[in-house]
Amino acid sequence: MKTSLILTLIGPDRPGLVSAVSACAGAHGANWMESRLARLAGQFAGVVRLEVDAAAADGLERGLLGLGEEGLKLAVVRTDVAAAAQPHLARLELVGHDRPGIVRDISAVLARHGVSIDALETACESASMSGEPLFRARAELAVPAGVVLAAVRSDLEALANELMVDLEFEEMADSAG
């Protein structure tokens, strides 16, 4: 039987951090299933899902936590339950002048509709003409069965008008259901 270990990690960025984590995983027979890794303000941060035989999970977890000696702060969570397939996937893209609270406001609308954020990427960058800070966000969303996409879209568009941002919301073509 296989077990998934989800680990979060953060530490000062330097060459070899991914190599250290993947070497530990390989030494315990784990398979690197998926990850989100980034350098943020000089720190290396990430979330990784490893899959390993249940009998090897304890050793893998101890090995991963031992990487703390290399300056990584790690947390490990195990799960034996396969993730439930989501009936609908949607994508949200947003761009507008940066200001505090954009993520808070958008995520509140999504939560009110029971929509989960599967992946979120955000960035601030200078506008090409004015140089003013622009906020960009791209999210992949899991929409539960029974949620009316038109209602979610309507609430998001109303908020986009209030925030004065451009927003696109669409169902992804490869949605199940």
Rank of each mutant, 00 (worst) to 15 (best):
I106Y: 08
H97V: 08
E93P: 01
E125A: 06
R91T: 15
F135C: 13
Q86N: 14
L134C: 05
F135M: 08
R78Q: 01
E132T: 02
S107H: 11
V103R: 06
V115I: 03
P100R: 09
M129P: 02
R138C: 03
E125S: 08
A111E: 09
Q86F: 09
D80G: 11
P87I: 01
L110A: 01
A85N: 03
S116Y: 11
E121M: 02
E125C: 01
A108G: 12
F135K: 10
A85Q: 11
S126N: 12
A123I: 03
V109T: 04
P87G: 15
S126L: 08
G101H: 10
T122L: 05
D98E: 14
A82H: 08
I102L: 13
V109E: 04
H97F: 07
P133E: 06
P133C: 09
R136L: 03
E125L: 03
G114S: 13
G131C: 03
L89I: 00
L134N: 05
D98I: 06
G96W: 06
L110T: 00
I106G: 02
C124W: 14
S130K: 14
R91G: 15
R138T: 07
P87T: 08
H88Q: 13
V115T: 13
L134G: 11
Q86A: 12
A108M: 06
A111Q: 08
S128Y: 00
R138F: 01
R138Q: 11
A108W: 06
F135G: 07
R99K: 09
V109F: 04
A123M: 02
I106V: 08
R136W: 02
I117T: 15
A119T: 13
P100G: 07
A83S: 14
E121I: 01
I117Q: 06
A137S: 10
E93V: 10
A84F: 00
G96S: 04
A85S: 00
F135N: 12
H113W: 12
C124P: 03
V77L: 00
H113T: 04
A127R: 09
A90V: 03
R112A: 11
L89D: 05
D80Y: 01
P133Y: 00
D118E: 14
L89G: 00
R91P: 01
R104L: 08
P87F: 05
V103K: 04
T122Q: 01
V95H: 06
V103D: 05
P87N: 13
H88I: 03
Q86W: 11
I106K: 06
H97P: 04
V115H: 04
L110Y: 07
I117C: 07
R91A: 15
H97W: 12
D105S: 12
D105L: 05
L94K: 02
E125I: 00
A84S: 05
H88E: 04
R91D: 09
R138V: 10
L94R: 00
G131E: 12
D80I: 01
A82P: 10
I106H: 07
V81G: 02
E132D: 13
T79W: 03
S130L: 07
L92E: 14
D118N: 14
E132P: 04
S130Q: 11
R138D: 06
A90H: 13
L94A: 03
V115W: 12
A90T: 05
S128P: 07
G101L: 12
T122V: 08
L94S: 02
S126A: 15
I117M: 09
A85E: 14
